[in-house]
Design a protein around this nucleic acid. Structure first.
Length: 362
DNA sequence: TAGGCCATCTGGTCCT
DNA sequence: AGGACCAGATGGCCTA
């Protein structure tokens, strides 16, 4: 785990990290040079970058000059522009212009390839996150935040033996995430077979299903600056959380030692493994079959009373869950992607271990 | 229409 | 010299 964190923080380049894991098998280099001119023509000589710095664009001036190595300064005089200090720029001959275009085209292709690699790495990262949906991808920034939290939470699990099914684990995962992502994660982690118990005992404020945001009946809360979850602009995870988790742990456990607790360490009663792996379209906890319309849209509507039982379901988020583009639905019912995936247990340490094994074996 | 997210182009900087 | 990386700028797409 420490190695993983170290690798991630080494350069902050997720692409490099994942590439080092050998997860990226796609040959991105095949794209080099293929789309450059095409996209370039699509964008034309886009104003991007030209107006801002202008350095490179000046090289493109005077495209009609054919003389090679002609250093005469006739152009400035034509433009009545003040003389420029510094080294003279070589005049842009047609040959140099062609070379420049070719170089720029190649650089563009490389940059596209590099960004595709980065996006692929992010996709890989999304797939090892606690919840994953093909149709509803976490944004890049949310993916990175969730990954950070996930590592943090897993570290906590390893260090303290805290149950990964504990609400604390979910809260750690959701720390600093946007409300939609928090709802998504919380939903993923709580939509297991234990969910009906939660619903049945909703009126009794069951342990493990804390009320939100300082609401009455809030059985536990972390010592975060503000109750509930931060909304954008996002909260930040202080380094002290990562380096000195004991302070956090102490606060968390202190809060958990309230009389409402069902167990001494704040862990809800063990309901057996959360198997099989969550498949909302298949083994949905509520035995709810998607309506034809839901199936068509790829989304499943969830009843409000159910979602309101989820951890982190802040009052402000009632009626809201992320839409296909990360935006929120505001409706009387609540929806989750049908293809959403969650692990049968948390943390999926076997997956982490296997991925890390891949990392170190290659 | 505003805002969020994204892909792309671009020039600068650093490194090999 | 050329490649990798980065950040700024821009425009497209989508949703509320």
């Amino acid at each position: 785990m420490t190695n993983l964190i170290a690798m991630m923080s080494k350069r902050g380049d997720m692409s490099e990290l994942v590439s080092s894991l050998g997860w990226l098998e796609e040959d991105l280099s095949s794209q080099d040079g293929e789309e450059g001119p095409e996209i370039g023509s699509h964008y034309g000589l886009s104003p991007v970058g030209r107006g801002s710095t202008g350095q490179g664009s000046e090289d493109l001036e005077d495209p009609e000059e054919d003389d090679d190595d002609d250093e005469q300064a006739g152009i400035d005089g034509e433009n009545k522009a003040p003389k420029r200090r510094g080294p003279k720029k070589k005049k842009m001959t047609r040959a140099r212009q062609e070379r420049f275009k070719a170089r720029r085209s190649k650089a563009n292709a490389r940059e596209r390839s590099r960004m595709h690699g980065l996006n692929d790495a992010l996709d890989v990262l999304r797939k090892v996150m606690p919840c994953y949906s093909k149709t509803q991808k976490l944004s890049k920034i949310e993916t990175l935040r969730l990954a950070r939290n996930y590592i943090w939470a897993l570290s906590e699990v390893l260090e303290s033996g805290q149950s990964p099914e504990s609400p604390i684990f979910v809260e750690m995962l959701c720390k600093g995430l946007s409300q939609p992502t928090s709802n998504l994660v919380a939903g993923c982690l709580q939509l297991g077979p234990s969910a009906p118990m939660m619903i049945n005992s909703l009126d009794e404020k069951p342990c493990g299903v804390p009320a939100m945001g300082g609401q009455p009946g809030h059985s536990h809360s972390l010592s975060y600056p503000s109750p509930g979850l931060p909304s954008p602009p996002y909260g930040s995870l202080e380094a002290s959380h990562l380096l000195h988790m004991k302070s956090f742990k102490g606060a968390a456990y202190e809060q958990h030692s309230s009389p409402n607790e069902c167990s001494s360490n704040g862990t809800p009663p063990y309901d057996g493994p959360l198997t099989p792996p969550l498949s909302i379209s298949g083994n949905f906890a509520l035995k709810q079959e998607p309506s034809p319309r839901e199936a068509e849209r790829g989304y499943l509507s969830l009843p409000a009373h159910y979602l309101s039982s989820l951890p982190h379901y802040a009052p402000s988020s009632l009626g809201r869950l992320p839409g296909p583009q990360g935006h929120l639905f505001q409706a009387s019912r609540y929806e989750l992607p049908l293809d959403i995936q969650a692990f049968d247990s948390f943390p999926p340490t076997h997956m982490v271990a296997s991925q890390m094994g891949t990392m170190y074996s290659e």
